[in-house]
């Protein structure tokens, strides 16, 4: 083997797995009403966050989340060598505008709702490659900025479909450092392929993304030669109720059965009575779950090995109008307490 850091067809294995040394998450009011309120660092009182527009609020939310994650280890933004970040807006403005103020060297990412995993694995590659010692991976999404870009104005009287998901208002940031510290490590990652099974309903992204999630999980297990029960929890990003029901059937078809240690952040993040229909979505969905309850449980030792499979639906309103189907993607990152 000439390339020892790649294993199988799509999986990268880190030689010195970077450590997740600190993290933070800020979420919106509705997320605060969900089951995980005490696990989030900060719950915003309203969607404006003291700003004049929702877009500005999202930028602030992302910026403050990164600052919070950095300050937890008594660093300042100047100590961070690389910021890898993305969001759902056109030209990923929330991220670049946050980076404008933070003045950290910046790489913008777009993987729709899969961006958390994409950012984490990119930052980890930069660190394990020996180029940087300390990087931050962050994402954000905001219900109202996403809604007006992808769907309808807020005040229009529209009935949401039963399979539609609620874009999570939330940002998550993770500081990754060279592997000389204690803490959960990012040991390997599987970069997903785009899978498009011809689904066109933009109100049902779970169905569009489920095949990509199933494909990435299957590939990850093949590449690493692991069985599903290697992990204490395999969690997909934001398939929601419809998508996670579908992915379970695809697991059976693929001969992989990660149940009962399989779950989905989109299903977990809200209570059933919160009227989200099929659960949560957006980059902020798995970011808030990861930087809130999931990493907390890893520190507490309740989860020792976590496979986070962030899923993204890579369409735009333009492609939907032009009748294109929705390309799905999923990236997996393995977090382990070594």
């Amino acid at each position: 083997m000439t390339n020892q850091k790649k294993q199988g067809s799509q999986t990268i294995v880190f030689e010195n797995p970077p450590v997740l040394t600190s993290w933070a998450t800020i979420v919106g009011p509705k997320e605060g009403e969900g089951p995980w309120r005490s696990d989030f660092d900060w719950v915003m009182e309203d969607y404006e966050f003291g700003e004049k527009s929702w877009e500005k609020a999202e930028t602030k939310m992302l910026r403050e989340t990164i600052k919070l994650a950095v300050s937890k280890k008594n660093y300042t933004p100047e100590d961070i060598e690389l910021m890898v970040s993305g969001d759902l807006l056109n030209q990923i403005t929330s991220s670049s505008f946050a980076a404008r103020e933070l003045q950290i060297p910046f790489l913008g990412m777009y993987g729709a709702c899969s961006t958390m995993a994409e950012s984490l694995l990119t930052a980890a590659m930069a660190i394990d490659g020996g180029y940087f010692e300390r990087a931050v991976a962050a994402v954000s999404s905001h219900y109202y900025t996403a809604e007006r870009q992808f769907r309808f104005p807020a005040e229009q009287g529209v009935q949401r479909s039963m399979s539609s998901q609620w874009t999570v208002t939330g940002a998550g940031a993770v500081v990754l450092e060279k592997g000389i510290y204690g803490g959960p490590r990012l040991t390997c990652a599987t970069i997903g392929k785009i899978i498009d099974m011809g689904q066109k309903d933009a109100n049902d992204m779970g169905s569009a993304m489920a095949p990509a999630a199933a494909d990435t999980i299957k590939t990850h297990l093949n590449d690493t030669d692991r069985s599903p029960d290697y992990y204490d929890l395999i969690v997909t990003g934001d398939l929601g109720k419809v998508g996670s029901a579908l992915v379970k059937q695809l697991f059976i078809k693929n001969g992989v059965v990660p149940e009962p240690n399989y779950s989905d952040c989109g299903v977990l993040i809200f209570n059933d009575n919160q009227d989200t229909h099929a659960g949560g979505s957006g980059c902020g969905c798995c970011a808030a779950m990861l930087c809130g309850p999931l990493l907390k449980k890893m520190v507490q030792g309740k989860i020792a090995r976590l496979l986070l499979v962030a899923t993204g639906a890579l369409m735009s309103p333009t492609t939907s109008f032009q009748g294109e189907s929705i390309p799905g993607i999923a990236h997996a990152v393995a977090l382990e307490n070594l």
């Binding site: 309808f152 229009q156 009287g157 529209v158 009935q159 479909s161 066109k200 309903d201 933009a202 109100n203 049902d204």
Partner: peptide
């Protein structure tokens, strides 16, 4: 029409 035909039917 909205409930029984294509999901792409908007207001």
């Amino acid at each position: 029409i909205m409930d029984l035909t294509k999901p792409a039917i908007t207001p």
